[in-house]
Design a protein around this nucleic acid. Structure first.
Lengths: 404, 404
DNA sequence: CGCATTTGTCTTTACCGAGGACAATATGCC
DNA sequence: GGCATATTGTCCTCGGTAAAGACAAATGCG
């Protein structure tokens, strides 16, 4: 139920029907490829004749191509249709406090080359120069991947979309950094910047291949910070300033520890990697200088120690698990998702902490079904952030027309 | 950006263009009435001929009627079009812990008769009998209002939409109460049940008459409990189980006071009317038995005492104001609304607490613009809950067709 | 009264899906 | 191999719709 306003309206014209169906056909090919015209017609509930015209238009535009003929039990063999991602690629960039990662994918988000990484230069100007140089090198090296359609960049912080500006990324030490312009100018390719949580949610949304996939979900990334991407009604929630989903800075306790954002007792201050490690060492690691052993220990190491019998390590993880569950309670109560995805280093210890997380969530959820909201862990090997960065570029070309 | 799935798809047919434009025309008439066909054509950016056909169809269906001819500087005078709400009415019901309110409106949500109220019967079965009897009496008394199109009921609690079941309304003492079926069966009229916060948000959404009105906002009702209705992209956010927006049970402090929902430190436990009064009296009013003076004091009385110079009363209100602002910080961080509406008894003291609320909000908001999110107070005299109940019935008939 | 202006209707044209016919292609049974 | 059957993809006609513009009706002004 959505009211229509004068300035919003996009009146349907003679071509609107075609436009809508073209988008539907393209997306059904994307999610069901390989698929024949006849099957497409069945999925769409329309005539083969109509579908043929749509498909031929898509082929003309090089959005789709005809591949091999498929097999059929009886009758004429079908011609399979595929999204045409030949000779095109997308560069995905994941900026993280210590290292930055680059991956090349096709328009479907499939990885085309090995992931490379380099230390993150903290000075924004130097960083951009460094990044551009490395992307150019990769594209020259992989000329076979075709023309680069765009660059998607994810950042652990708040991003303003219109200008591609990083408003605030405490863990990077960036504030009000204009990223898109410089990169786009140097590369002469469209560039998209987005918060990592939102990008992961977008990738998850676009990875779904059937209607059974959740259409209301939250994607929670737990790393140096906590980012949450929210999808409602198959749409990424951005909010007024593109900073919706900052559940990481909703309090567990307003009288709690100070957080990098300036407030106190944020969820992030309880469950970030630094918070987990701080609990293990029994002191706040933000207080510098760090001793050498402390500085190099990672959450992965901590998990290894916990598995190796280190009781203190396990206790720190379980404590994080409990806070993670309590915060998930806030997410569930606020948006009532059908599913929650969790990414980040802590997921490697999921078998150790799941029960704790679940019971803490159930404590705060308002109804038993909400407390039992399914949780899926996304392992780092799937590169959720980089897939999200790729989706920033690839997804819009499949975007549905918004009516009215 | 929204992917299309096989089972979701609604392929555009020959009639889809018309269907879309019919909806647009109907909504433009609603938000701009009185309006002529020619003006409508200009708003829609289409030809008068096309609009005429649409409008005549709407007139045929009795959705729109031709009223008086308007004035024009030169040329032929236009025929004004209006939404046809003649001989139709909607019954709005607001169930609250102590009293239940009934109002009769037209399809535009305009009040048609005086608001009546009666004590809320706590036993659901008896309540339904009582309510049905009273609604029937009102409809008999006001035969001139025309045929009742439906009954909208708002409840301070979580509502399951499919069956019209109240899942949990702690302040009413209701749990898993089937409301819609019994009322609909007795009245033989469609009945809609909804959470009061969601309904208020819906009414606010539908009351907007131009595109400048916020399309992302939160409506916070602070009374016996705290309800929040969230609108994103001109659409009410319901979530998977229709319990999205329960910010009232997001913690300010997980180690805080016990809340009616079973958890601890919920926002509601800090800012509900009972919490405010408890602070004033210096003890938890949920602990019975109540002494006579305590039981009858309302928040309105407390505000009067504060204005009369009662320092303790003012302190209690300011304390509530601070917690209100901290909780609003969570709302702002989670959904980044362009606007926040606040309703409830506490709004009568807005001039006393606004500064406190705003500074607490700014403390927790992540960016200065987010901290400065506009807040509008909706006074009780506008009957926001009853307008929301009416919108439950009236809004769907103007609902936009959802494509794909 | 004649002219300009505006409204609302009507006619023609073009676009597109619905429906169905049809050729091409493949399998299985005789 | 020949024939019936099934399936795919194309083609043609029909009906619904907006686009474009002509036109009559209504109104004010000189």
């Amino acid at each position: 139920m959505r009211p229509v306003h004068a300035q919003n309206v996009r009146v349907a014209t003679r071509g609107t029907t075609r436009e809508i169906n073209r988008g539907i056909a393209l997306n059904l090919i994307r999610t069901n490829q390989p698929i024949s015209r006849a099957d497409l017609a069945r999925l769409m509930g329309t005539r083969r004749g109509a579908v043929s015209l749509l498909v031929n238009e898509l082929i003309q535009d090089e959005a789709v191509f005809e591949g091999a003929t498929g097999e059929a039990k009886r009758g004429r063999k079908p011609t399979f249709l595929y999204i045409d991602s030949r000779k095109r690629c997308v560069v995905a960039v994941d900026i993280r406090p210590t290292r930055t990662f680059i991956m090349v994918t096709d328009l479907m988000g499939q990885q085309l080359a090995t992931v490379t990484s380099f230390p993150t230069e903290r000075d924004p100007k130097k960083f951009v120069l460094d990044l551009v140089r490395r992307i150019k090198a990769i594209l020259v090296e992989h000329k076979d991947l075709g023309r680069c359609q765009g660059i998607g960049v994810v950042v652990p912080g708040m991003v303003e979309s219109a200008e591609g500006r990083v408003l605030l990324a405490p863990n990077l030490g960036w504030k009000d950094v204009l990223l898109r312009g410089p990169i786009a100018a140097a590369m002469k390719i469209p560039v998209q910047i987005e918060n990592s949580g939102k990008a992961c949610a977008l990738a998850q949304l676009w990875a779904s291949r059937d209607a059974a996939a959740p259409s209301n979900f939250a994607y929670v990334t737990v790393s140096d910070g906590v980012g949450v991407g929210v999808v409602m009604g198959n749409q990424l929630v951005r909010g007024q300033h593109n900073i919706a989903g900052e559940f990481g800075h909703i309090p567990l306790n307003v009288d709690g520890p100070r957080c990098g954002c300036g407030a106190t007792g944020c969820w992030e201050a309880y469950v970030s990697n630094l918070a987990t490690l701080s609990r293990y060492f029994g002191r706040d690691l933000r207080d510098r200088p760090l001793s050498a052993d402390v500085a190099t220990l990672t959450v992965d190491d901590l998990i290894a120690r916990a598995r190796g019998g280190d009781g203190k390590a396990l206790a720190a993880l379980l404590s994080t698990g409990r806070y993670l569950g309590l915060g998930l309670g806030s997410v569930v109560n606020a948006i009532d998702p059908s599913h929650v995805y969790i990414g980040g280093e802590i997921t490697a210890a999921w078998d150790l902490i799941e029960a704790t997380v679940r019971s803490a969530l159930a404590e705060r959820a308002l109804t038993p079904p909400a407390g039992a909201t399914p949780i899926t862990v996304v392992p780092p090997e799937q590169y959720p952030r980089l897939r999200g960065a790729a989706a920033l570029v690839a997804a819009p070309s499949f975007a549905e027309r918004v009516v009215a």
